[in-house]
């Protein structure tokens, strides 16, 4: 499992990989919050259930990340600990855990405007599931 940020003029892209589709979605959630702030010492104190639906796998990933972003803007919650319970091409149900963003404890990085469809792709395994996502900064 892993994520690597890459450059995109004015924005942030991330390449993701994981052995399973569930792992890919968890990693994507972690990467989203890592773009926003350093989540190194975010403890799983509160949880939110996140549901998203999409037209296909990539769209579902996009909607899922967008939902996490909305939770951050609304409740200021960093939720990098993501467990995926249900997942198919068009739906995902997950529990995301973390705590309220505290600028003194979690170094803020950048605000994200949106999770874009630009270069969005999900490639199924085996061996590894991979995906590319670009965040609009």
């Amino acid at each position: 499992m892993g994520y690597t940020f890459f450059d995109h003029t004015g924005d942030i892209g991330v390449d993701l990989e994981a052995p399973t589709a569930q792992g890919l979605f968890s990693t994507a959630g972690l990467a989203l919050f890592e773009a926003i702030a350093d989540t190194g010492n975010v403890e799983p104190r509160v949880t939110r259930t996140v549901r998203a639906e999409g037209e296909d796998r990539a769209d579902t990933l996009n909607r899922f990340l967008q939902e996490l972003l909305v939770i951050f803007d609304e409740e200021r919650l960093l939720l990098p600990h993501v467990a995926v319970h249900e997942l198919d091409e068009r739906t995902v149900v997950a529990t995301a855990a973390g705590e309220k963003y505290d600028p003194d404890r979690h170094e803020g990085r950048t605000e994200l405007k949106a999770v874009t469809w630009h270069q969005l792709a999900v490639t199924p395994g085996p061996p590894l599931w991979t995906a590319r996502v670009v965040f609009d900064v």
Binding site: V70, D73, E74, E111, V137
Partner: peptide, 18 residues
């Protein structure tokens, strides 16, 4: 409603980026 959820705590804030 989601748009309102995201924006109602941000009136009078600068944001980041450019």
């Amino acid at each position: 409603d989601t748009a309102f959820r995201r924006g109602m705590g941000q009136v009078g804030t600068l944001g980041s980026g450019n």
